[in-house]
Simulated assay, not measured.
Amino acid sequence: MDRKAQILDEARRHGRVTVEGLAATLGVSQHTVRRDLNSLCSEARLRRLHGGAEYIAPRTNLPYQTRAILNAEAKTAIAARVATLVPDGATIFLSIGTTPAMVAGALAGKRGLTVVTNNLNAALALSEAEDARIILPGGELRLPDRDLLSEDAIELFGAYRADIGIFGVGGIDADGSLLDFHEPEVRARERIREGSRSAILVADVSKFGRRAAALGGHVADADTVVIDRTPRPPFDAPLAPLGERLILAGSVAHV
């Protein structure tokens, strides 16, 4: 990873970075850091602050393959933690998205699962699970994400009742509102939540403050929220009332 990519990754993970801190982390001069920050700000990837810069969340969704490798360690930790909440023989819903797909991979060691999903990546990840029953909707496959969001796909979740529904989200606003990039994504996610005896929201910390246009649901609507670590203020505020419903799967909470 080149130096500018490292700076961008630090800013994405922590929300903001300082010239002094980056110089120490990267082992370069503060002048070099300032030059790199100016370049990233000119590309509208960071916003300059006194003594540093802050991350600008993308307004559009990134390509699937890019999202699949972003925050991979955090998503792996989330997936492993969620797998401990799913017993053998459960009926589960799985939403679209890279984190639910990684959860599916973590569930491949379970026995006797019935899985209803519009996420082909998740279905393939579970195809080797012992005695698994996998139910997919029909319709056109969205590429390159490899998911289905037709009306039939959305209604499929209404034809079943799941023990556990596991869903991701495009972004989480400062008031806890859940955001996605397209309105059918919201409807499918809400149908998963409504049709589950226990609904689990999975999101790595980069989703907090990430902007997306389609609004629906609130972080508090989930029965359980699994994240890698707490986000920076003010995005931590809607998590405070969750209590034991909030599970930190990754590193020590960010202050």
Rank of each mutant, 00 (worst) to 15 (best):
G195V: 02
R59M: 05
E185D: 13
A199L: 14
F157S: 00
R59K: 08
A159C: 13
P137D: 10
Q30P: 13
A101M: 11
I56Q: 06
A24K: 13
P233S: 08
V186D: 07
S42I: 02
R45D: 09
A199Y: 13
L107V: 04
S251R: 15
D223I: 08
V17I: 15
N121T: 14
P63R: 00
Q30L: 01
G176N: 11
S39L: 07
R67V: 09
G112M: 03
L8C: 14
S29F: 11
D175P: 02
R189P: 00
F157Y: 14
L94R: 08
E244C: 01
L107D: 07
D223A: 12
C41D: 13
D152V: 10
P184Q: 11
I166T: 06
L149A: 10
F181K: 04
P137F: 13
T25M: 14
L70C: 06
L49I: 12
L124E: 13
T230C: 06
A77I: 06
E140F: 14
D236C: 03
L215W: 10
D88N: 15
A80P: 00
G171T: 11
I96A: 12
A79S: 10
T18C: 06
A72C: 01
T224H: 12
Q65W: 11
A213S: 11
L107A: 02
E244H: 07
K110G: 01
R245C: 01
P63N: 03
R193Q: 13
F208G: 06
L46K: 06
R34S: 09
L242P: 06
I164R: 13
K75F: 10
N71E: 15
G176M: 09
A188T: 09
A249K: 01
A253K: 08
T98S: 10
E183V: 05
R133E: 10
S127H: 10
A213K: 04
L149D: 02
E151M: 04
P234D: 09
L126D: 02
G139P: 01
I56K: 03
A222G: 04
G89L: 14
G216A: 01
K4M: 15
L201T: 00
L107C: 11
L107H: 01
E140V: 10
A53M: 07
S39P: 00
A104D: 12
L46E: 07
T76Q: 11
K75T: 03
G139C: 03
N61D: 08
S251M: 08
C41I: 07
K110Q: 06
K75C: 06
E73W: 11
A174W: 00
L70P: 03
N38T: 12
T18S: 15
Q30R: 14
T84M: 12
V255R: 13
T76I: 02
I134F: 08
P137Q: 07
T66K: 11
L143Q: 15
D221W: 04
L248D: 01
R47C: 05
E128C: 00
A162I: 10
R59V: 12
M1G: 15
A106Q: 10
R211N: 03
R48H: 10
A23G: 03
R187A: 11
A159V: 04
S206D: 07
E151I: 08
I192P: 05
A253M: 08
L40M: 06
P87W: 05
G243Y: 11
L62Q: 14
A203V: 07
Y160D: 10
R211K: 04
G21A: 09
A5W: 07
T32L: 02
A23D: 10
E155S: 13
I164K: 05
L239G: 09
